[in-house]
Each structure stands twice: as structure tokens, then as C-alpha cells.
Computed example of a mutant assay.
Amino acid sequence: MSWTPSENVVRHVGSPIIPDMEFFAPPPPEIGEVISADSSLSRSKQATQAQKRIKNCLIWASIGAVGGCIFAFLTELPVLICALISTVLAIGVGILTTQYFYQCSYVGELGIALHSLKGQRSNQPKTQVFLFKEGQNLFTQQTRNYYNGIYTGTNFNYWWTRLSGSEFRLKGAYRSQEGNPPADNLYHFAKAAEGQWSTHLLPVINEQLNQMGYIEFPIGKTLRMVRIGPGFMEFVEKDGPHRVEVADMKDIRLGGGIFQFKHKDANWWSGKGKYSFGYAAIPNARLFLICLDRLTGIHW
């Protein structure tokens, strides 16, 4: 059963929905009101791929007919029978090599959903649903790949840990050295989901800020936590917290997936004067950036 978006729903990239875009499966009601949606299936694409399948089958049929005739000549079997069997088998190969794969996705107020359709248009799609109330933390990772100094593509991985049960993961790849991938790439679904997840967590962190005076982000083993408060940050290690006023920081950078914080005093923090940690190590990293901006004025 297909679904028709309302006027206020946009694509995950933020642009209007394409008129001939087909949503082959509706959004599950449990994800709430749909904010953004996208689909790799459209009426124009179906027509193009149908033509491609016919062309591919004709090519394979020709190969099969020729191969059958050659086989008949070598084995002295009836030419017509060999050609017919070989052609039918070749057409089957042609169909299998032009299998369709479509996805449609939804970001709602309460969760997200991804439908995947493989093979025939009439097949039953595979559905994955993640509700924000089930989630614990979101981790994100992007890797730009190079070979001999030449950019070969970017891999992305977004995964939510749950309060119980297995992770929910969105991953894929794109090739766009200068900017973002095409609008239909799954990357934009992951980014839109991250944005709504951050919105979902805002009441939680506001309550934490009111109660504790800071917002806490667990990092890892050596650096256990990073806390963000009005005008200050605390880096919590095994020996306790190290507080620093943002005004006393000399340099704050985010580059190559690494945060680096430098103090005006080179002897700060056991004589290091700086501390750094990876962006991918921070749970709910987008929310971390929002808190930095709102509470300390640090932004990128």
C-alpha cells in the first residue's frame, strides 16, 4: 500500500518532495507525525529500469541462442532444441542481473523507519523501525578514503545503542569530495534522524542542566566524561574533574574528526596544556555541538 506525503513533509535533505516519487510502504504509526521522507522509487525510474531489463534480456537471449547453436554443432544435438534451452536459461540470467532494489524512509517525531524492497515491485518490503524512547546513545562516524592520495569515497556509520536489545544501525557510502552526496543517498536519512534524535533529547539535557548545573557526555576509559556548563567545561578523568573556563582557553579546534582544547597556561592539566578526543567517541555528538554553542559560545 503506497503512501502520499502531506504538504508540510520535505525530503531528508530539506528540499520539496518530488511529484512522481513513490512511497511503496507507509510510515508506521508508532513513529508519530512524519517530518521528512524520501524514496529511491519513482514512476520515471520504474519506466527506465523496465526498459533496461528488456534490453538486458534481449542481449542475454542473443548470447544464449548463439551459445546453443555452438553447443549443438560440437555435440551434434538438434540445433533448435539446444538454441531454445540456452536462450531460456540466458533470459533467466538477464532477469537475475537486473534485480531492483528500492528504499523509502521516514523520520517522525517519535522514531524512524526504513523500508527496503528487493526484486519485483510486488514483493513484500523489509521494514526496520527504531523508536527514540528505546534508544540510549547515538554514535556517528565518517571516513574519507584515499588511495595513493586520490579520494575514493566516504563511508558513514550511524548506530544507536538501546536501553535493551541490539543496536540500530544506518550505514552506507557516497563519493563526493567537494560536498554532500546526492539527495537520495541514505546519508541524508541518517543526518535527519540524528537531528530529530537530538530534539528528542533536549528536554532530558535541560533537566540535567537545571539539576546539576552542567550536561554530561560519557567518552571512554581514560577520559571518562566531558561536562559542559555555562561558560565552562570539565574533563573528568580517574583522578577527578578538571574544570576550565572557556575564557581561559587559547585554542579550540575540530579537524579530521578530532576535538582539541588548548589552555592559555601550558602547564595546565599535568603539564600538557591541552586535551583532545575523537568526535566518533562522543555519544550524541550533534547534541554535544549544540550544548557547546548554547552554553559556551563555541561553534563550528
Rank of each mutant, 00 (worst) to 15 (best):
V9D: 04
L110T: 14
I215S: 04
A285M: 07
N8W: 02
G149A: 06
I63W: 06
Y100R: 15
N210M: 04
A90S: 11
F277M: 10
G220M: 02
I112D: 07
G94Y: 12
G257D: 06
D293G: 13
I17H: 02
F232H: 12
V79E: 11
A266H: 05
L89S: 04
K52L: 09
K264V: 01
E22C: 08
L186R: 06
R53P: 00
D248I: 00
L292R: 05
A90F: 13
I215K: 01
G278M: 10
D239G: 06
F71H: 03
G135H: 10
E245S: 12
F139A: 06
G165F: 07
P5H: 08
S40D: 04
G14D: 07
P218A: 11
G111K: 11
C69I: 12
K264P: 00
D251H: 09
H263T: 02
F23N: 09
I258V: 15
L110C: 11
G278F: 03
C291D: 03
I54C: 00
L292M: 14
F71N: 02
V66K: 02
T4M: 02
S42M: 03
K262G: 00
H12I: 12
L163H: 09
L41T: 03
R243C: 02
K55T: 13
I59P: 00
A173H: 10
T222N: 04
A281F: 01
Y147M: 06
R286M: 12
G94V: 10
W269F: 15
D38M: 08
W300I: 14
W160T: 10
L163R: 15
K171V: 06
W159F: 15
G119Y: 09
P28A: 07
I282Y: 02
A285T: 13
P78V: 01
I85V: 14
T97E: 12
A192W: 04
P125S: 10
I31R: 05
F217R: 03
G165A: 03
N210E: 11
K262V: 04
V204L: 01
S36N: 09
V13W: 00
S105N: 13
S44F: 02
L209R: 04
G271S: 05
Q141E: 14
A83E: 05
Q142F: 02
R11T: 15
Y275G: 14
L223A: 09
I290Y: 07
C104T: 15
N210C: 01
A192K: 13
D20H: 10
S39M: 07
P5Q: 09
I85K: 01
F189Q: 09
W3K: 12
D38K: 03
I298Q: 08
N267K: 14
N56T: 15
R144T: 08
I35N: 00
H200P: 00
S40C: 05
L74I: 06
A72C: 04
I54N: 09
T98F: 05
L186Q: 07
D38P: 01
Q141F: 09
N180S: 15
A190M: 08
L41E: 14
R243H: 01
R43D: 08
Y146A: 08
G179N: 13
Q49H: 11
K133M: 04
E33S: 14
A90D: 01
I18H: 05
D184W: 09
A72F: 03
K262W: 00
K171A: 14
I290R: 11
A25F: 09
R175W: 03
G165N: 06
L114S: 15
K238D: 07
Q260M: 11
R162H: 08
P16A: 12
Q46L: 14
L74Q: 06
